[in-house]
């Protein structure tokens, strides 16, 4: 899961930053010439800056390749269209049966306030999401890779029964 990768990267980077701060704090009791420290730090800073720029550029180029936004080009197999409508505090799902491997387009909207249409797999790991907004239709395209009972959870605070605004979605084997 992408979430595991993201977690690992975060922990490593936060730990690295913590290590640098602890190292500086541990040696702060010693005294060195301020101007010499500053000159060296300024030289290192240029390298640090360009390193970060390179990392950011690489991360940008990598992550912008596969955006979750709707693709206008038709897939090889036509998409199944499912209409998902949020209303305080229930989901209405209308459409044909969902099958593993067959592209789906969820057309998501709301009749009252903002809701969040979050799709979780049977193991309760989030697969995808989009907002459900009154007056707008958000198109979420997805191809399920495993069968089972998926869960739809509301991911935008919508009032008193927000936490119970859930439903299930069955994906059948091919």
């Amino acid at each position: 899961m992408l979430q595991d990768t993201v977690w690992l990267i975060s922990v490593i980077l936060i730990a690295a930053i913590a290590a640098v701060f602890l190292w500086i704090a541990a040696g702060a009791g010693q005294k060195a010439d301020a101007e010499a420290v500053q000159r060296r730090a300024y030289r290192l800073r240029a390298g640090w800056f360009w390193l970060l720029v390179a990392v950011i550029a690489a991360a940008t180029a990598t992550t912008l390749r596969a955006l979750p936004y709707p693709d206008r080009t038709p897939p090889a197999v036509s998409r199944v269209v499912v209409r998902a409508t949020g209303a305080q505090w229930a989901w209405t799902i209308e459409g044909p049966d969902l099958v593993v491997g067959k592209p789906v387009e969820f057309q998501v909207t709301s009749t009252d306030v903002n809701h969040g249409f979050g799709i979780y797999n049977p193991a309760l790991e989030m697969v995808a999401q989009t907002q459900a907004m009154p007056g707008y239709l958000n198109r979420l395209q997805l191809t399920f890779t495993a069968p089972g009972a998926y869960h739809i959870l509301c991911l935008e605070y919508c009032g008193l029964v927000h936490h119970q605004m859930m439903t299930d979605l069955v994906v059948k084997p091919d």
């Binding site: 992408l2 990267i9 930053i17 704090a25 992550t63 955006l67 979750p68 969040g116 697969v127």
Partner: peptide, 29 residues
């Protein structure tokens, strides 16, 4: 001094969440 760590380290998960592909499985969690 701690505040500088908190700000710098807190940027990491913030930036990661601002990544569109990550946001699609992390937003509003």
């Amino acid at each position: 001094f701690l505040s500088m760590f908190g700000w710098a380290a807190g940027i990491v998960p913030a930036i990661i969440d601002a990544t569109i592909v990550v946001n699609s499985v992390m937003h509003n969690t």
